[in-house]
Amino acid sequence: MLQPGQKETILTQAKTNQTIVITKGGTYSGTWVSYDSEIPAVDIQTSEPVIIENSIVRGAGYLIKSWGYACNLTVRNTEGYGLPPTPWKDYTKPRYFVTADVFKNVVVENCYLENTAGINITVEYLGNGSEDETIKIRYNKVRNIDGRIYDTLETVNFVGLNFSNPIRHAEIAWNEVINEPDNSIVEDNINIYNTRGTPDSPIRIHNNYIEGAFPYPANAKDYSGGGIISDSPKTDSTKSTAYVEIYRNQLVGLGNYCISVAGGNNIKVYDNTAIVSGLFENGKRYKFWTSGIWIKDFYKMKSTYNIEVSNNKLAVVGQNGGWRNEFLDSLKVRDLRPLNHFIKGEVTKSLEKEEYRAWRHKLQQQAIRPGPAKG
């Protein structure tokens, strides 16, 4: 990874793009960079299996892109850095670490992301439903998801899924995501949007540590992002978000909400921890809304039902210093609220930092080290 001060050196060098277009399957390793938001650093134009490993990718726009090729892509042990964005044409190009549309398989494991716009997977799943053709986003270390583009902002996530056709064996797990106020601008850290697992194989979002979700600038009053959300404005309940399990995640210092179901069905939320003091490091209080678990048929499309919420540990303080642990729509949620636990006493920045220590201890117990493996 870059050492302190190294990025500044890179940005002052001659800005010569060193990009790659991949048209054949295989394993690729290298260092690729694009200083132009219009040019991807890595452009994959094949449906054959491609592995990118042990690499460094930097980009002012898309870092790794595959559009229109039903990609089968694995990215592992790779570092990705967002560079200052340049003017764009026709449509915005956020600094996605990986962007894929029609796809068979996308795996992102043991990578490091800094100042990128995260991972965006959209349009259509064309895989065969096996464990070899799915989505796996695991063991990554992430700093400052950033939706800033040239002269404006784009809505981005650490992981955003929005595609048709149900998927089996999908997993987002064991990622460490830390966003700093005024150094990041993330919408929902994880957004599952009109995307479905299956009854026998739900999309599993588990054992992630997510710290920080703020507006830009961080002292603004309005913010619509947050932690992990099931989001679905579809009127047809067979196409809305469904069959998702959100469990054993640790969510710290987030604005707006920690876990939300704004739309979707057959969703389980359990064994998560949400700690929000509502304070910045300087002791000033957030000006924006906070909440722990927020569940509501937001779009009023009658496709939100069968939501189970249980055994979550919550300590969330709002912008007025009062408690904001949960909002559960009793018409949509099985009444398991007595099984949720509310931490008593003052919620401080120290309590948030204690949760990070608990996360590091959990990693040690499981012998897991997010980020690229050291050689």
Rank of each mutant, 00 (worst) to 15 (best):
S330I: 10
Y91I: 07
K332Y: 03
K374E: 14
P215D: 09
G26L: 05
I52T: 02
I185D: 15
T122C: 00
K268H: 07
D151E: 15
Y305E: 04
S164N: 14
A14I: 14
S55T: 02
N77V: 06
V142W: 10
L351A: 06
I145F: 11
L73F: 00
A60F: 08
Y209E: 09
Y112D: 05
T155C: 14
V102R: 13
Q3Y: 12
P4T: 09
A213Y: 12
E114H: 15
V123Y: 15
F298Q: 08
S130N: 08
I368R: 00
G227M: 11
I190C: 10
L279Q: 00
L314M: 06
V261W: 04
G225I: 11
T19D: 09
L351R: 04
K7R: 15
I190E: 10
N179K: 12
R168Y: 10
V21N: 06
N72V: 02
V316W: 01
L2K: 11
V347Y: 08
K89L: 05
V261S: 01
N325M: 00
W67C: 02
K296R: 08
I267L: 04
K374M: 08
D182F: 14
I293V: 02
V276L: 03
K362L: 09
T348M: 07
T78S: 03
E176R: 14
E187D: 15
T99L: 13
T304G: 05
P370E: 08
N266W: 03
V276Y: 02
G118S: 03
G59H: 01
R248N: 02
P202L: 00
I368H: 03
E211W: 15
Y139E: 13
V177H: 09
T304F: 05
G321R: 08
W174L: 05
T92G: 07
N17M: 07
P217K: 09
G264E: 04
